[in-house]
Design a protein around this nucleic acid. Structure first.
Lengths: 365, 365
DNA sequence: CGCGCTCATTGGAACGTTCCACATGTCACT
DNA sequence: AGTGACATGTGGAACGTTCCAATGAGCGCG
């Protein structure tokens, strides 16, 4: 019946023919009969459409018999409410929109866990669109959600222009997650990157490191704060002269590029603080290739505590952001706005924490 | 203005107080004034709502002046179409729903890349919901999409009960991706796991391996096919007596468990074919701990070519699934159905390919 | 000059809900 | 018996679009 017998490879595109085959009969069940509406249910149950509506919304001012008649009629017909019609009639959809800048980044996935968890508990549904890290496509993704009449918008790691956010915030409450925002009309939830960076430096100094370099995250969200946190911490430890920042990015290649630059310096650092875990993997790759051993010859620290950091062969010391909590908090803020309980913008900063693993140790000698 | 000054850590929950603070004035711009509708635009442009509708849908039977009047009126008012109303009036939404079983798995993210790419080209929008790998929540996620009146449904890696899929397929065309399906009324797109497994075995045999073991994927999607492909290939090479399958899972711990079992066997295999990349990392962990070197002492192969396999410290030989192409194909199939161009179910099987990296070499000696 | 054409434009009826004001029916109490 | 209170049920008007049939204006042509 299924993908068994004539297994042959298809090309890159589906173009009929190769790699595909048909199953016997199939017919998309009764495509002609359109979906039952509230009126069909009403007719079958012998009541008015209004009563059906009442029952379906769980009103308690309906007699037991009628309720059951409606319920069974609905079940028998396979009735499913039409959210478009509902959203039109009430002026709200009970749906929250989530714009995710990048589906590939596990960091964001965990935010969404928190979002779904909290939203579900509050009987709100969530739908997601993605911008694929491209500002223009992000605008499109946001547009889609707005047109679908979401009651609120969560922007996760968005790289879109601030003006676009401001525009959208005229239509619907917005909470921005993990990106600092100046727009007064939207809330935000971020982790305290500066403090996170300081935790890293404190840890390394405690291990005895002095030559601690930072491969930064360029213009990425939070990169600037991490950089300044690093600088401030070194100064606090009386190591101002050791401050070394090389340009990088929130990507593997960005980290690799930064590390290469550090390797050719006259005095090689004994510890590297990478802008995030992804950059840290780039750093590690270059370090490995140079024949240096981690952590014996050099210590490496990341940021974000993505699952990447936890995998065996990396075993990366990193900074954990409470992503789930950030997601939950974001929804809480959004609902406050939606329910009209608050008007002034609120910016929540959550505490990061250090996760010590095997990529850090005392410097050699 | 923003998250700067009084940076303090909040707890796990947003509960007012700690870690949060307000910005000055903000007011959610004119919350009172509701969004402009097509009627507002019509009034401002001095035409009928019908004409506005025509212009907005890009009809060519509208005079130049009127068109421009409408367009500028719309722009000035910041008009945005209401997808709910539109979807109600036409009986279609032009939106495709994607149910993603797991947001964390980069494998799925790449499918979505292909989906968005193709759908965007066909002027369809996509929205995503997640089941968080829980069948019940998947049902909910699917329900949400159906209520929102998506024109078609893509189920990616779904673990939901077949009956639920069948039910949903009565309402809307469905394509299932990367899971074999028996339901006659839905299409599917999968990679050819059996052939993929054979590629692995061929590669290892060519390198000179004979004792090739398989840590399987238990009841995971495609696991059975990979196992039987492995067995068939060994037989084809006249190595039927060497067939060794130990139970595992599509997880790191599953792989580790399987490898531990293999280590205590009397004759240790010289090569391991793990059910997927994740399981392969578990295998590698156990191998490392046992003091064996890869690939000198033992070769390891994964499946899926996730980014995990590509990172320097794994450098894992693996099987690539054309995920992007699978996503594109899925959309192509779906659109055929939506457009009523096809009725019989179609099952597309795409070819996997071997990616040789540094985790495989000739056996010792 | 009136006929039919084409062409741009329009009003009104859907679409499937919700919600409000109103209509019943029942019962307790005077 | 009449009154009001209360519980239950109903019709119709929204909501913001699309689409169809109809309206006029302009024009070429006999």
């Amino acid at each position: 019946m299924v993908a068994r017998g004539p297994v042959r490879a298809g090309g890159l595109r589906y173009a009929g023919g190769d790699g595909t085959f048909h199953t016997g009969g199939s017919l998309t069940d009764l495509e002609g009969v359109s979906r039952p509406t509230i009126l069909d249910v009403a007719a079958r149950a012998g009541v008015s459409k209004s009563l059906v509506s009442l029952v379906l919304r769980g009103s308690d001012r309906v007699s037991r018999e009628r309720r059951e008649a409606v319920l069974t009629a609905a079940r028998e017909l396979g009735y499913r409410p039409n959210a478009a019609a509902r959203s039109l009639a009430r002026q709200r959809s009970h749906v929250l929109g989530v714009m995710l800048s990048d589906l590939h980044n596990p960091y964001f996935a965990e935010c969404v866990d928190g979002i779904d968890e909290y939203a579900g508990g509050e009987r709100y549904r969530t739908i997601v669109t993605t911008g694929h890290l491209d500002p223009e496509r992000e605008v499109d993704a946001i547009e889609t959600l707005l047109e679908l009449q979401v009651d609120g918008l969560l922007l996760i790691g968005s790289v879109v222009a601030p003006a676009a956010i401001r525009d959208a915030s005229r239509e619907v409450p917005i909470v921005v997650v993990s990106r600092a925002t100046r727009t007064g009309s939207v809330d935000s939830v971020v982790n305290d990157d500066r403090t996170g960076a300081q935790l890293v430096v404190d840890h390394l100094v405690e291990l005895g490191h002095r030559r601690i370099a930072h491969v930064d995250g360029g213009r990425g969200a939070g990169a600037q704060q991490r950089r300044s946190g690093y600088e401030r911490a070194l100064r606090r430890h009386g190591l101002a002269s050791e401050i070394t920042v090389v340009p990088g990015a929130f990507t593997e290649s960005g980290g690799a590029r930064g590390m290469r630059e550090l390797l050719v310096a006259d005095e090689r650092p004994t510890a590297i603080f990478a802008a995030n875990d992804l950059a840290a993997t780039g750093v590690l790759e270059v370090v490995d290739r140079a024949g240096l051993r981690v952590p014996d010859d050099i210590s490496v620290v990341g940021y974000d505590n993505t699952h990447l950091a936890g995998i065996y062969r990396y075993d990366l010391t990193t900074v954990d952001q409470p992503r789930r909590a950030m997601g939950r908090t974001a929804v809480a803020l959004l609902l406050e706005r939606i329910r009209g309980e608050r008007d002034a913008a609120r910016h929540v900063v959550l505490a990061p924490s250090l996760v010590v693993r095997g990529s850090t140790a005392s410097p050699p000698g």
